[in-house]
Design a protein around this nucleic acid. Sequence first.
DNA 1: ATGTCTATCGAACGAACGTTCGGTAACTTT
DNA 2: AAAGTTACCGAACGTTCGTTCGATAGACAT
Lengths: 230, 230
Amino acid sequence: MALATIESRTEGAAADGRKPRRKSDLLDTRFDRRLATLLEHAARIFCEKGYEGASMRDLSRATGMSLAGLYHYFESKEELLYLIQKHTFRTIIDQLKVKLEGPSGAEDRVRTFIENHLEYFLANKEAMKVLTHEDETLKNAAGAEVRAIKREYYGICLDLLEDLRRAEGLQFSSRLAVLSLFGMINWIYTWHNPRVDADARVMARQMGDIFLRGVLSPSRPQRKSLRAKS
Amino acid sequence: MALATIESRTEGAAADGRKPRRKSDLLDTRFDRRLATLLEHAARIFCEKGYEGASMRDLSRATGMSLAGLYHYFESKEELLYLIQKHTFRTIIDQLKVKLEGPSGAEDRVRTFIENHLEYFLANKEAMKVLTHEDETLKNAAGAEVRAIKREYYGICLDLLEDLRRAEGLQFSSRLAVLSLFGMINWIYTWHNPRVDADARVMARQMGDIFLRGVLSPSRPQRKSLRAKS
DNA sequence: ATGTCTATCGAACGAACGTTCGGTAACTTT
DNA sequence: AAAGTTACCGAACGTTCGTTCGATAGACAT
């Protein structure tokens, strides 16, 4: 039930039932800009204390806006999380699609995927941690919508890997490959330290090496018996 | 301050300041057994709703024990999380050490690590998700202790990988390798479905293949130029 | 039989939570 | 100048939270 409002708010003002706006859309963008900075603060707070652990009073304190004033920009704490997750996911997907537009080899395309993910992840650590960590937090319609976007992202990666598998004439479980890759590149939010770790470009190169060699190498004969089997 | 109590409770009753127990230790084990089942229920609830989202009333309902009665077995919700995390981590490490006792090749030892991790993970999904997901939740002394155990576990894996690197005369960043591996094997809690995915043994084999080939393969010449670089 | 210890409970406490209400001051449109 | 809209606020509401208090009933020791 909340989703209807959510969607009308975020999917273009022209579609909803209100009167046509006569003022310049400057006011519209002022609203949007203010909302955007609220979302930024919220992402930081959700990142630091977790969604459940964060309070509206935390956000009020961080933004200097009164508790009641916040509700002028969204209608619930849940919608806050929804807006953060949806925007973050859409942005990373849109950015990826642009980078995949030109023709390129199957391996390069997978490397582009990894690089795009890590670049966006490290440039938007807080929002990406909220996206990753609060994966199962949203329920109902809003949760379903975010989960659908996630499936789209997963599907793109799966397609890239299956293209690669076909191009190289190899055999491996695409599902396991995607999920292993996602593990590698998502887990990063638990450990990456910009003062000791390389930047996104370099790390995409290194992780891409590990993953792609692992997936592309022919299975070499086991040096030793791998435990009793058959 | 809470940690002192926590430690005296969990590190053997003989060391604390109480009178020597005259009753048979049957009562002691009854207490411990009851506590253990409470911890099991708590792990399931923390797993389902997250630590912050779970309430003591949830635990009371799930166990059939009154809200007040729970506090006979631990002194705070925080200690509950601490006990779950500490016990889970210690058990997986102890189990690993046993399996690593015999002499074996460097690669097999890494495979043993992966297999042990996945086996324990899938056999104790709930506790392991709580361990993984509520990584940064505990603060102060209890948090520091769990973090120290985690560092021990990380260190074991790092040593195994450096042994392997030396044995094979290869060059790769051990830090990145460990953390990539941890990503692969920890991320599993977000997707593993026993009805569609293989069991721990098989998955350890497959993930081990990807990871080890990736780390062990010599860097093959790039088929295509990898973007403009130099 | 009496006193101590263990396990448990109903009821309550104060704090914090997400959210709402009624108002106000500034700005826009008429 | 009047009317309407937008952007906010202080104060409160009802709920839920983690935790504590005082009591009780059985088990065990003296």
